[in-house]
């Protein structure tokens, strides 16, 4: 299978009794818990949406959210997921030059997303939507703010992987290091796929 893992070319020092790399198992378990975390935030936004509209301080999301800006942000994160998987493919075949290009492109796209989100938050603030202006403001900024924080953590994670590979280019853990950082990064993109549809488009 062209797109499957290549366990034979990955260090096996961390393979536990379950037959999988214990660090990979840990990251997938963490991602599972993160799915529940974001589900709670999305549920809160959706449950309080009609409550927000019924209150005296109601703010209609349709009047505040910019679909075009967030479509660009969605494209940036989607492109970063592609560059991330291309970085993993490159490091698996030992092409370190392309690996560096794709990984740094991923980090660059991540920071571009964050720049766009800062711009969005600033615009919303100037139009009167803040963390305490309404239930919409509170639930929206908590949800998207936590997501943005995850993007920032992911970018820092990938940068740390980049510098570790630079420092220890022959480490047998390199492929797994990239794969683990990539798993987290793709999850951040996955969350945005849901947020983009549920919060911005619907």
């Amino acid at each position: 299978m062209a797109h499957s893992s290549h366990p034979g070319r990955i260090g096996t020092a961390n393979v536990g009794s379950l037959g999988v790399d214990s660090r990979k198992l840990g990251v997938w378990t963490f991602i599972g818990s993160e799915a529940l975390f974001f589900a709670a935030l999305i549920t809160t936004y959706l449950v309080f949406a009609p409550v927000n509209m019924a209150r005296a301080d109601a703010q209609n999301p349709k009047e505040y959210l910019d679909i075009w800006l967030t479509s660009v942000l969605a494209a940036l994160l989607l492109a970063s997921s592609l560059t991330m998987v291309l970085a993993l493919a490159a490091v698996r075949r030992g092409d370190m030059k392309l690996f560096r290009v794709w990984l740094l492109a991923t980090v660059g796209l991540g920071f571009s997303f964050l720049g766009g989100q800062v711009y969005e938050f600033t615009e919303l603030y100037h139009h009167g939507a803040t963390l305490s202006s309404s239930l919409f403001g509170t639930t929206f900024f908590v949800l998207t703010g936590f997501h943005g924080t995850h993007v920032l953590i992911g970018a820092i994670w990938l940068l740390s992987v980049f510098f570790k590979v630079q420092r220890y280019p022959d480490s047998p853990e390199t492929v797994m290091d990239v794969e683990l950082g990539g798993l987290y990064w793709h999850f951040v993109d996955l969350v945005w796929v849901v947020i983009f549809t549920v919060i911005y488009l619907i």
């Binding site: 299978m1 797109h3 499957s4 893992s5 379950l18 037959g19 999988v20 990979k24 198992l25 997938w28 997921s81 592609l82 991330m84 998987v85 990539g182 798993l183 793709h186 999850f187 993109d189 996955l190």
Partner: peptide, 13 residues
């Protein structure tokens, strides 16, 4: 399935 490679990965994962 394709970017995170969960398709075809270990059942426990």
């Amino acid at each position: 399935m394709y970017f995170m490679h969960l398709k075809g990965d270990a059942r426990i994962l």
